[in-house]
Design a protein around this nucleic acid. Structure first.
Length: 824
RNA sequence: GCGCCCGUAGCUUAAGAGGACUAAAGCUCCGGACUUAAAAUCCGGCAGAUGCGGGUUCGAGUCCCGUCGGGCGUUCCA
């Protein structure tokens, strides 16, 4: 008697077996070739949502698929467990963030396990684990020693809602906090930073060799923002061009030194320290008012192009000499020039820069074109190529030549030099929060900043803390934490109360996974070298600027510091971005009962059906609007599979031993075609089409079995076994169960099936013969037929002859073996 | 504003380097079987001049141009 497909029972049993048998535990000395498959470790938010399901399903498909190809697949999992939600919960409820976090981890871990994803849990990492914190702090100290971590006062992005400083990347383009949505303001604070800018050039260059989506590489390139140009000095002068006695100069950066003759004014950023020296007595009041206003503005207001241009700048009263022609030009302050980029000052060339053009128009400043615009040019500033004009010794030169000449001239004169600028800034890692990894330094009145000695690590977060409704970090008021001794002199000292940005922990967790239980070191460099770079990294695109850039920086820095293997300079060889699972749209609603809770669907249809539905509903890279409706389709399909493959089922029992028929041969060929097709689709991440192929193939098997001659045990067995093998990475439980019932072995330990090329290619095919594009005949031909033979056969066809009559073919288009078109 | 991507049944996706066959699959919907009935399941069916207009070609969902609609990225970085 056939057993029912008991989804819950089967899935629970196999999940237990995979854990108990350590099926996906992989040792570092495994003799099989290594393959590191990594899914981004999640922030533990509690119960899994559909985004998690999608991410970890994709990762699991890769893990099981590569395993069946004979690799030792490293598939670790862990938790990015520091972060604001836990702290916010603590502020609200008084529960310690550790307690809160541990509970959320337990929930998410349970749902990830319920999904049936194969992980080596021996390597599990939690960011807030004291052992992980210890090595995280240890790495911080190495960066500090190397000068890659430093402290500086800087105007920083301050989020009033989160009560903390944000990295530039955490501020949205509209000037609000990516977390809380509050408007971000500027504040001057002492902060810890990492010198990511030291690696700007390498971070840019090494992108080329990475097998990443072009889109992501472009985002990274833009973020690094390399631009080549020149820096030079403008002597500050009186209105007549007489340089000041103090030889004050304004250093400017430009990418267009070729346009220098068109400079009609200069602009200095309002925050520039030189401002106080530039401003004249008559202008002081206006300048002070302007600077005060800019400083009080939010990023939104400042970056807005809405404001009246007339109010966005002010004349300083000073002049600067254009070194190219000795002309004095007025010096302005304007909010469109930023202190953080280049030198914080520019030469303004309205003829070739639209921002300068707009400003010049608003302030009645002169505009001199120095590049001849094309005929009929009706635009304003012209930034394209063209012969130089109004530029003395540059006249007539093309843009590139003129740039080159101007830079050479600056260098000859000794007033400037070539300069490469990056948009990338150093990484601000200080956070004024409690629930993060403490920065392991103390402040001693005698010795200043003193690192905590390695043997005193980790600096742990205290348990007995009170969270204030203001959101301020309790560390600032916790005397037990705060008061310590200077490691150098033993005198009283205070601890740093800032904690690290969570991106620090996520910048090396993939190193730690390879050697997760090491107590003597952050990791063993040789072990890291065995596994890294990650062969396949999987995650959402929302992390692509921040996390990927920082992880790349860390990898390079660790290599240079001799901590990581020196040949591993990039962490992630291949990257795949799955699309976001949206929960928007009317279709999702609680009242309709179709809210996307994976737990409900595990319960109603099982993990395999949910996984298969995720894989089927869209290409993995596409965004999807989640609807639960379709899961019944994949669930139904798995039941169909069960009835076909369970050896005790009626269908399987109906197969007989008999001599082979045409139907058998056809199914066998279809099976080989399926192997060829699906194998390729796995490589291309075209899982949705692979699922469609499984469905079509299964429909074909049903037709075959129910056909006249019934099913041959041998042919049917081969077809079904193949189907189970090919589906095993996607729906591991049901395939494992069916395979075991059929063969008593583990499906995931079987080698991947190989297609027989001779059977994939059909021996004979139906060639279509058209006359003037209309179908007139079909001829069975050998699949290797050549052009001439195909044409002859077509012309010889009686049907074609009848149609042609006495007309003569003007042209015979032969596309063997599929088609011949006779054109009259 | 600039750049990139996408418009195929009611919905979500397919259609190997342009080629005919009924442009596939699942969901939805309809019918039948089973059932006291329903659900589930099984069997079957409806459904599409591939956004619109032009072009290239013997032949276009596939290539080119235009247009409309939708999406994503970027936008003071000198």
């Amino acid at each position: 008697m056939a057993e029912a497909y008991n989804v819950q029972e089967i899935e629970a049993a196999w999940q237990r077996r995979w854990l108990d048998e350590g099926t996906y535990e992989v040792d570092n000395d495994d003799p099989r070739p290594p393959f590191y498959c990594l899914s981004m470790y999640p922030y533990p938010s509690g119960e899994a949502h559909m985004g998690h399901v999608r991410n970890y399903t994709l990762g699991d498909v890769v893990v099981r698929h590569r395993t069946m190809h004979g690799y030792a697949v490293l598939s670790p999992m862990g938790w990015d467990s520091f972060g604001l939600p836990a702290e916010n919960a603590a502020i609200k409820t008084g529960i310690h963030p550790r307690e809160y976090t541990d509970a959320r981890i337990a929930e998410l871990k349970a749902s990830v396990r319920r999904l049936g994803a194969a992980f080596d849990w021996r390597r599990e990492i939690e960011s807030h684990d004291p052992l992980y914190m210890r090595w995280n702090q240890w790495l911080f100290l190495r960066l500090l020693e190397a000068g890659l971590a430093y402290r500086a006062t800087a105007p920083v992005n301050w989020c009033p809602g989160c009560q903390t400083v944000l990295a530039n990347e955490q501020v949205l383009p509209d000037g609000t906090c990516e977390r809380s949505g509050d408007v971000v303001t500027k504040r001057d604070l002492e902060q810890w930073l990492f010198k990511t800018t030291d690696y700007a050039q390498e971070l840019l260059e090494d992108l080329d060799a990475l097998d990443w989506p072009e889109r992501v590489k472009t985002i990274q390139r833009n973020w690094i923002g390399r631009s080549e140009g020149a820096e030079f000095d403008l002597p500050v002068a009186d209105p007549h061009g007489q340089p000041r006695g103090d030889r004050l100069v304004i250093r400017v950066f430009t990418t267009r030194p070729d346009t220098s003759f068109g400079m009609t004014y200069a602009v200095v950023a309002p925050e520039h320290p030189i401002v106080t020296e530039l401003v004249t007595d008559e202008q002081r009041e206006a300048v002070d008012a302007f600077v005060a206003r800019v400083r009080s503005e939010t990023e939104i207001e400042r970056l807005s192009t809405e404001g009246a241009l007339e109010k966005r700048g002010v004349f300083t009263g000073s002049y600067a000499v254009n070194p190219f022609n000795g002309r004095p030009v007025p010096v302005y302050l304007a909010d469109y020039v930023l202190m953080g980029y280049g030198t914080g000052a520019i030469m303004a060339v309205p003829g070739e820069d639209q921002r300068d053009w707009d400003f010049a128009k608003a302030y009645g400043l002169e505009i001199i074109r120095t590049v001849e615009p094309p005929e009929g040019w009706e635009g304003e500033a012209y930034t394209g190529d063209g012969p130089a004009i109004n530029s003395e010794w540059l006249d007539g030169l093309s843009k590139n030549d003129a740039v080159e000449r101007a830079m050479a001239w600056l260098e000859e004169q000794g007033i400037g030099e070539r300069k490469v600028n990056f948009r990338l800034r150093d990484w601000l890692v200080s956070r004024q929060r409690f629930w993060g990894c403490p920065i392991p330094v103390v402040y001693c009145p005698e010795h200043g900043i003193v690192p905590v000695p390695d043997d005193q690590l980790p600096v742990l977060l205290p348990d007995d803390v009170e969270f204030r409704p203001t959101g301020e970090s309790p560390l600032k008021f916790h005397t037990g934490f705060l008061n310590t001794q200077c490691p150098r002199c033993g005198g009283p000292a205070t601890r740093e109360t800032d904690t690290m940005d969570g991106f620090v922990e996520s910048s090396w967790y993939f190193f730690r996974y390879t050697d997760a239980r090491n107590e003597q070191a952050a990791f063993d460099s040789d072990v890291v070298a065995h596994w890294l770079p990650v062969d396949q990294y999987i995650g959402g695109i929302e992390q692509d600027i921040l996390h990927l850039m920082y992880a790349r920086f860390f990898t390079k820095a660790l290599a240079d510091l001799g901590i990581g293997p020196k040949e591993v300079r990039e962490p992630f060889g291949r990257l795949f971005n799955h699309g976001v699972v949206r929960l928007g749209g009317r279709r999702m609603s609680k009242s309709r009962g179709n809210i996307a809770r994976p737990a409900d669907l595990f319960e109603s249809h099982g993990a395999d059906a949910l996984r298969l539905y995720h894989l089927f509903m869209a290409p993995p890279g596409d965004e999807v609007d989640w609807t639960s409706g379709g899961i019944v389709g994949t669930s139904r399909f798995l039941h169909r599979l069960w009835r076909l493959a369970d050896p005790a089922s009626e269908l399987a029992a109906s197969a007989v031993e008999r001599t082979t028929t045409d139907a058998d041969a056809e199914l066998e060929r279809a099976t080989h075609r399926l192997i060829a097709r699906v194998s390729d689709e796995y490589e291309r991440w075209s899982y949705n089409t692979a699922v469609a192929a499984f469905m079509e193939f299964t429909n074909g098997i049903y037709k075959y079995v129910q056909g006249e001659s019934g099913g041959s045990a041998e042919t049917l067995g081969f077809a079904v076994d193949t189907l189970l093998l090919l589906m095993a990475p996607m729906t591991p439980h049901v395939c494992a169960e069916l395979w075991e019932r059929r063969h008593g072995t583990h499906v995931h330990e079987q080698p991947w099936p190989q297609a027989d090329p001779a059977l994939v290619a059909e021996a004979t095919v139906t060639m279509v013969v058209q006359v003037d594009g209309k179908l007139r005949d079909r001829i069975e031909v050998n699949s290797s037929i050549d052009d001439a033979t195909a044409g002859e056969l077509a012309l010889a066809s009686p049907k074609v002859r009848a149609i042609l009559g006495d007309r003569h073919p003007a042209k015979v288009v032969a596309r063997p073996p599929r088609l011949v078109n006779i054109v009259t």
